[in-house]
Amino acid sequence: MKILVMRPSPEGEKLVNILNDIGILSWHFSLFDFLPSTSSISLSKKIYKLYISDIILIFSKKSVYYTNLYLNQNNLHWPIIPDYYTIGKGTAIFLKKYVKKKFYFQKMKKIVKLY
């Protein structure tokens, strides 16, 4: 059996190393990587939209990590008013470190509140 791991770096490489160590031939190929923005476009306008949102959808732990990094560097906090929804329990647990309110994640095709 051969496995192609398409997770972003560095998690993808870590998984490939584990699989190869236990004798499962694996390769890593990522379609995208997460990095801090170097764009000259002002993030302040985008952050404003974060604060006026009704719902915030979180798709990955990396998006939480980099958003939190930006907020901390600019002495800002996660908005309290919007409802937060995450894709996956792992992302929900990771987000819970930074957002001190109830939010939702999908579990087995239904929405669950995380307290």
Rank of each mutant, 00 (worst) to 15 (best):
54 D>S: 11
22 I>L: 04
37 S>H: 07
112 V>P: 11
69 L>T: 08
63 S>H: 08
24 I>M: 02
114 L>T: 05
71 L>N: 07
63 S>V: 09
109 K>P: 10
2 K>M: 04
5 V>K: 08
10 P>H: 04
65 Y>C: 07
74 N>H: 13
55 I>T: 08
82 P>Q: 06
2 K>S: 06
100 K>Q: 11
48 Y>C: 00
64 V>A: 07
107 K>F: 09
49 K>C: 09
34 F>N: 02
41 I>D: 04
66 Y>S: 05
114 L>W: 04
70 Y>C: 04
98 Y>L: 02
66 Y>F: 15
68 N>C: 10
107 K>P: 06
67 T>D: 08
37 S>I: 08
7 R>F: 00
86 T>D: 07
79 P>T: 00
31 L>H: 07
17 N>I: 01
21 D>W: 01
60 S>P: 03
13 E>V: 01
20 N>K: 06
40 S>K: 13
108 M>R: 13
77 H>V: 09
83 D>M: 12
59 F>P: 10
42 S>N: 10
51 Y>V: 00
9 S>D: 09
6 M>T: 15
57 L>I: 13
18 I>T: 13
86 T>W: 06
99 V>H: 03
35 L>I: 15
68 N>T: 13
96 K>V: 09
100 K>D: 11
1 M>C: 07
34 F>Y: 10
54 D>W: 10
14 K>I: 08
82 P>S: 07
30 S>R: 07
84 Y>Q: 03
115 Y>M: 14
12 G>L: 05
5 V>E: 07
91 T>C: 10
30 S>W: 02
54 D>H: 11
4 L>C: 04
50 L>T: 01
113 K>Y: 07
73 Q>N: 14
72 N>D: 11
56 I>P: 05
4 L>E: 03
46 K>S: 14
107 K>N: 13
31 L>M: 10
68 N>E: 14
8 P>C: 06
85 Y>A: 05
99 V>E: 01
79 P>Y: 01
48 Y>F: 15
71 L>I: 04
44 S>K: 15
56 I>C: 05
68 N>R: 10
69 L>M: 13
93 I>Q: 14
110 K>M: 14
76 L>I: 01
89 K>L: 15
